[in-house]
Design a protein around this nucleic acid. Structure first.
Lengths: 207, 207
DNA sequence: TTTCTTATTGAACGACTGTTCAGTTTTATG
DNA sequence: CATAAAACTGAACAGTCGTTCAATAAGAAA
């Protein structure tokens, strides 16, 4: 007579992936209130103690979740842009469209970022995840901007700085929309980004 | 023989002002860790119970602190702009300069906003304070933009939307600088805002 | 089948949280 | 000077939190 096992073992890497996924689900469901070891372990279907078995501290798990989520979204958007046929300017529009689509611009989804930003101030591990993923994000924007200049009569400008500006406006609009979606519509956010690039091409950030 | 009193009574309004000030000092000193009733009451030199005597809940005190801080800063910057002699465009530059000065652009100071944003997601009272003060902030920007159009050949644009865009970029830049001040300098942030307005005047957000 | 490694459990711990409330003390008023 | 209103105290309460660790059990290796 074979007993049903009380739990199933997993290799550390597989278990860690489970925990990261559970962490993100918790954030989506309950915001920062979901970020307790008890909430996460319950969501993952494991005991409280297991988190500290696989991670030195809870913050390390959260940092992993940050990195996973940010990387996935960036990849997602990069893919969409890559699939877009057209000029660099049109690819840029596709990029904006993806970012202001309901997939990314979801209140429950965006508030995760506020939690992460908040944690960046409290946890060194999360701060490092932020730095890393944000640099990757700006780099992608920079690439698009370079293509833009090559393909048109857009005047030269400081790519690094322009990427920071655009990235900053995107973050700021996300933030505001997340805190109060009644102030402006996703379509209006899109228009603002398009206008920003038009200003850039018109020479607003000329060297 | 007169005994030294164990505590001094204050009128509710005066005490509440003290508590708001103590809350802001706690935030500056310890970030979100300073936002406990024990931390605040200690900073204010009163007992834990007094907070709930004057406020229905801790969140109401924090919402008051949010409003006080945001209103003060806005007033401060508005004053600086009012004292500036020159064209609307020059006043706008004075506005940016004030916002990227070391008074506002201080890491310990900016991170307070992240805490407030984070709390907006958790507390209805704080959310209302955010909505109110943010609307006032955007309104000030809108006023400056209207003056800009009146005084120059700047093409007409959607004032409301433009104010949202500029406000969004300012928030985003604050956020990024606060999370990692090594990515760009205050001077570079200033340049980005100037460029944004130049783009606006060049017709990037034309109707 | 037995042995051994280690993933997993869950109670326990100590520290913290916001709120309550009975009792105390100040201070203005009669 | 007596009285009454209410500002104020601080212990107590019922939670929460992340981490620890001895005990347990799964499952691969011998």
């Amino acid at each position: 007579m074979t007993e049903t096992p009380k739990f199933r073992r997993q290799a550390p890497d597989a278990r860690k992936k489970d925990l990261v996924k559970a962490t993100i689900r918790c954030l989506e469901k309950k915001g920062s209130d979901g970020l307790s070891v008890r909430s996460i372990s319950s969501e993952a279907g494991i005991s409280v103690g297991l988190i500290n078995h696989h991670y030195p501290s809870k913050d390390d798990l959260i940092a992993d979740a940050y990195e996973k989520l940010a990387t996935d979204i960036l990849q997602n958007v990069v893919d969409i842009v890559a699939e877009t046929n057209g000029s660099p300017r049109e690819k840029m529009s596709a990029f904006f469209k993806a970012y202001f689509s309901s997939i990314v611009l979801d209140q429950k989804f965006l508030r995760i970022w506020i939690v992460f930003w908040h944690m960046s101030d409290k946890s060194e591990q999360v701060r490092l995840s932020h730095d890393k993923t944000n640099a990757g994000f700006r780099q992608q924007i920079e690439l698009m901007l370079r293509d833009l200049v090559k393909s048109s009569e857009t005047p030269e400008f400081n790519y690094r700085l322009a990427a920071i500006g655009l990235s900053g406006m995107l973050d700021g609009l996300w933030l505001e929309w997340c805190l109060n979606p009644d102030v402006f519509s996703p379509e209006e956010g899109l228009m603002l980004c398009e206008g920003w690039v038009d200003g850039l091409m018109a020479g607003a950030f000329k060297l």
